[in-house]
Every structure is written in structure tokens, then in C-alpha cells.
Design a protein around this nucleic acid. Structure first.
Lengths: 142, 142
DNA sequence: ATTAATGCAAAATCTTTGCACTTTC
DNA sequence: GAAAGTGCAAAGATTTTGCATTAAT
């Protein structure tokens, strides 16, 4: 049994998970520490799985997929779609946009105030904007 | 042997394909007619395959994937990424943006002049913007 | 104890590939 | 006839699911 509440290095992660109603399990805590206690980052399930292995942890890929989606559902992560066939998750949950560096397959944030969108929205009846994605693809000049 | 050049209903499609250097084969002609001789549309390989079957044509899914990518490579289609796990192709190749109707999984065009983007681009050295995607997700108000 | 989460392997999706056969030029 | 394109089935890649086991409350 893990008394995580009293394990100093996990205190923050435990609290974060409890706040959103997720049980602080060993796996979720490890992932939370990796994701939320460093600088913001963009990960795919595979990237995160690799990081987990590098840290000598053992978390199945299925659990990583599950956790990423749970974190997203409770608002701890945002999903970013840039590439069909690969799902990225972003630890920066504030409103912002993205550069997508095509050659490297890497994302970078663009602060929301760097882009000014003026639109005349024709939202269909009974619908609403759920989010606005701006993705600026960057490629080699060549 | 199909003398497509002299088959009236295919004349336009034959010309279109020749212009971009693609041989006007039976399959490519059928797809070109479906895609380019009606109103603009957004299709996935699967959607197109279904349309082909409804028209009592027989084109393998692999050939549809190949053709969609060939058409994209020569600039007859644009790829739109809105959903990881499903690739949409757009027959509207002019600059524009998209609504994505989440419930229906359907795309709608937004004319480029409805959205005004002002940005201060910090393009990294030796790189350039290759495209700017704006996708406005629309969901049920609920 | 009860309830939830995990791990695994299997299945589901979507997409690409290899190669023999066919069609176009 | 040479070169290119097609179809099929098989392989790839990513993601999801079912269920027995394990852990958290």
C-alpha cells in the first residue's frame, strides 16, 4: 500500500489528482509527475511511454492511453490534432495556438495574444464554438 | 481499351488528369468525376469508397488511398487534419478555413475573408510557413 | 468489503506495402 | 513492348476493449 499523501515527493501530484476526482494510483502519480512537474510539453502516448521506460517505471501502454484520456476529460490536458494517425496531448491548458514543425513532428506553443482572429461567426442554431484551433505549419525553407 | 479522350462525359476529367501529369485510367477518371464535377466536398477514403460502390463502380480501397494521395501531391486536393485517425481530403484547394461539426464528423468551409489573422511571426531561421490551418470546432449547445 | 484501476492480449481502425496482373502510352 | 497503374491480401501503425487480477478507499 502506498500512503502517497505522506510521501513528500508525491504530495503535489496526489493533491492534483484528488482535486479532479481521480484516484492517485501509482501509475497516474508517475504520469502526473512526468507531465505536470516540469516545463509544459506535448506528448503522444508513445513518447510518454518511452519516458516512463527511461525512468525505469513499468506502465502499460493501454494504461497510458487511458490516463491521457482521463486527464484530458478532467481538463488537465488538451488534445491537439495536427497529424492524422498520431494524437498529441498538451500540458498547457490555457488558450493558445501552435506551430507544427513538420520535419521534426514537434509542436510549439504560440501565445494567444500573438494571433488576432476577427470573425463573423455564423454559428448554426443550437450549436456553439467548442474550440478554435490555429495551427501554423512550419517547414524547411529549401 | 478506353478511348476516354473521345468519350464525351469523360473529356473534362481526362483533360484535368493530363494537365497534372497523371494517366487517365478508368479508376482515376471515375474518382475525378465524383470529386471534381460536383460541388466542393470533404471526403475520407472510406466515404469515397462508399460513393464509388453506390455508383456501381469497382475500385479497391487501396487504389482510392493511392489516388487521393496522388491528387493531393499534384494539388488537385488538400488534406485537412481535424481528427486523428481519419484523413479528410478537400476539393476546395483555395485558401480557406474550416468548421468541424463534431457530432456529425463533418467539415464546412469558412471563406478566408471571414477570419482575420494578425500575427507577429517568429519564424525560426531557414524555415517558412507552409500553411495556416484554422479549425473552428462546433458542438451541440446542450 | 466495495469499488475502481491496471495489465495484458486481442480486436478494431485506418493506412500502407509488395507483388502479380492489367492497362496505358 | 515498356512503363505505369491496379487489386488484393497481408502487414503496419495507432488506439480501444474485455476481462481477470490487483490496488485504493
Amino acid at each position: 500500500m502506498l500512503d502517497m499523501d505522506n510521501e513528500r515527493p508525491y504530495a503535489r501530484a496526489v493533491q492534483k489528482l484528488r482535486q479532479v476526482g481521480l484516484r492517485p494510483t501509482r501509475q497516474r502519480l508517475a504520469l502526473a509527475k512526468i507531465l505536470f512537474e516540469g516545463p509544459n510539453c506535448h506528448v503522444t502516448a508513445e513518447i510518454l511511454h518511452t519516458r516512463v521506460e527511461k525512468a525505469n517505471l513499468n506502465i502499460s501502454l493501454a494504461t497510458i492511453y487511458n490516463s491521457l484520456h482521463q486527464f484530458t476529460d478532467v481538463g488537465l490536458l488538451k488534445e491537439v490534432v495536427v497529424d492524422s494517425g498520431r494524437t498529441y496531448f498538451d500540458t498547457n491548458i490555457s488558450e493558445h495556438h501552435h506551430y507544427f514543425l513538420e520535419e521534426e513532428g514537434r509542436l510549439e506553443d504560440i501565445p494567444v495574444d500573438k494571433i488576432n482572429i476577427n470573425m463573423l461567426p455564423d454559428v448554426p442554431e443550437g450549436k456553439k464554438f467548442s474550440k478554435v484551433d490555429v495551427i501554423i505549419h512550419v517547414a524547411e525553407e529549401n
